[in-house]
Structure formats: C-alpha cells, structure tokens
C-alpha cells in the first residue's frame, strides 16, 4: 500500500506503547495466576517435609468409609469420590434451577424498553452489595421450621414444611447467591439479538415455542454456556452455604478442603484442590468442545 514512510516508524512507536501497556499485566498474571497454581501442584505432590509423594493424590481416590444403609447393611464407599459426586450433584441441580429461573427473566429484560432494562439490572445487582455471609444467614430466618415460610403456611391453615437442613435448603441458598451470575450473561446475549429475526420467524409461520426453540435458544447458547460456568463453579466449591443452610449435614468438597486446611493438613488440602481443578478443567473443556467456538473469549 502506498503509505508514507513516516507511518512505519509511527506504527512501531504505537506497538511499543501497547506492549508497554500490556507488560504489567503479563508480569502480574505470571506471578499471581500461573505461579500460585504451580504451588498447588507442588504441595499436592509433596509430603510435610516437601519430599515428592503420590500419597495425597492416591488418598483422594482410595480413602474409604463404612456407611450403614437403612436396612442395616454396611457398605464401603470411597470417601472423597462420594463427596465430590455429591457436590457435583448439588451444584448441577442449582445450576439447572438457575438456568430455568434465569432464562425467562433474562428474556423479559432483553425485550423491555431501555429504562426498565436498566432498572431491572440494577435491582438484580443490589443484593451482591450486601455481604454474601449475611444474605445466607438471613435465609435461615426464612427457611427454619419456625421461620417465615412456615408461619405464613400456618397462618393460612396449611401444614408446615421442613426445609432447613434438607437438600432443598442448600439448593435455595446456592440459587439465591448465584442467580445473578446466570441472568447477566444470558441477558447480555439476548439483548444483542436482532428483533427482526424473531419477527421474521413468526412471519414465516413459527409458533411461539418454535421461535424459542429454533431462533432464541440457538442464539443464546453462548450466554447459556457462560452462565452455567459462572454458577456451576462457585456452587461446586462453596462451604459456607452448606454449613449454614444444610444444618451441617451436607459435607461438600469445599468443606473437605476447608476442613483439611484448618486441620493444618495443607498438602492434602492442596491435593483435593488440585484434583478439583483438573476435574473442572475437563468439564469445561468438554463443554467448550461441545459448543464449538460459540463462546466469546479473547481470541
């Protein structure tokens, strides 16, 4: 191209400036994102005197516990595998509930006029400014046997329900805390959808459900993937919610890590964290692969 010569020097200048702008982050990311993960691996594969060992990793997979089932028969289960599967189950349920609850509201938001959109968004964000611990604590008051729900039920003459300490309570806590993380990515893809596409589909004879299935849903997949990631990951590793709303009866993988940390068993805590990280990476990798490159990253 017939560019004047000066441009070349200028471009170099510009590139140099951009590189300089990137440099602090590069150093930071290397030092505080990558290196710490190496430390997790290092601790996971060493014993208390920092000698190499597979002990911690194999303990995760082989440790067993006797459990008695209802009929009195005793079974042997693999402790941490079971804990992990339980956490995954609860997190998956919570994520699914978040998706089901969040999808319509995200759609409603995206289709409202700008002013309503803005208000709804703000309203959804407000709870996040009150600390997570306090919000979770307040749920106890609502869910407990003499709590608000049951008082309401008995006021209208219905029999009380037992919620606190059940799986439902833990799921409610997780859904509550992480719902905004589902709504916002969903909303952000839906707001970008072209209304004309929906109208076109209707003009061409698509039913309401048809539009949803053939147009809206496929277009929203990247948001769905983002939302699932943002909800699944924190809910799989939480330990406060399960302690407070689960009556201490739900022992999740986060509780296991925290328990080993307070028992000053750093190497085993690191091993559990390391395995959790690898398993999640695999999950995310599979999900990304399934949805191809629909998810918008940096690249």
């Amino acid at each position: 191209m017939g560019r004047p010569r000066g441009d070349n020097a200028m471009e170099k200048n510009l590139i140099r400036a951009d590189r300089t702008a990137l440099a602090p982050y590069t150093a930071w990311a290397a030092l505080f994102i990558v290196v710490p993960l190496a430390f997790v691996a290092y601790y996971a594969f060493t014993d208390a005197s920092f000698n190499f060992t597979f002990e911690n990793i194999s303990r995760f997979f082989t440790a067993t516990t006797q459990t008695a089932s209802e009929d009195g028969s005793v079974r042997e289960i693999r402790t941490y595998i079971v804990i992990f599967m339980r956490s995954l189950k609860l997190a998956a349920i919570s994520t699914a509930v978040c998706l089901v609850m969040g999808y319509p509201i995200a759609y409603i938001m995206a289709r409202s006029d700008a002013r309503v959109q803005k208000t709804l968004m703000t309203v959804i964000m407000i709870p996040m400014w009150m600390n997570f611990l306090i919000r979770t604590y307040a749920w106890i008051t609502i869910l407990q046997d003499t709590g608000l729900i049951n008082r309401l039920l008995s006021a209208v003459g219905l029999s009380p329900v037992h919620i606190i300490g059940t799986q439902t309570a833990v799921v409610v806590g997780m859904v509550y805390d992480y719902l905004p993380y589902m709504i916002l990515p969903l909303y952000s893809v839906m707001a970008k959808m072209d209304v004309k596409l929906l109208e076109a589909a209707q003009d061409l004879g698509c039913s309401g459900l048809g539009v949803l299935r053939r147009v809206i849903w496929p277009l929203s997949v990247p948001g769905v993937i983002n939302g699932i990631t943002m909800v699944l990951i924190p809910s799989i590793s939480t330990f406060y919610i399960s302690q407070k709303l689960g009556d201490g009866k739900f022992f999740l993988i986060g509780d296991a890590i925290e328990g080993q940390y307070t028992a000053n068993n750093l190497h085993f805590a690191a091993a559990i964290a390391f395995i959790l990280m690898i398993l999640l990476l695999i999950c995310m990798g599979v999900m990304r692969w399934l949805t191809d490159k629909k998810r918008g990253g940096l690249a």
């Binding site: 993960l37 997790v40 924190p234 799989i236 590793s237 805590a269 990280m277």
Partner: peptide
C-alpha cells in the same frame, strides 16, 4: 473459571 477456594488456597 477456577473456584474461589482454589484461587484463595493457591
């Protein structure tokens, strides 16, 4: 995409 607990521990 890493759980908080892992970022914290690391």
């Amino acid at each position: 995409t890493n759980p908080d607990i892992i970022t914290g521990i690391s």
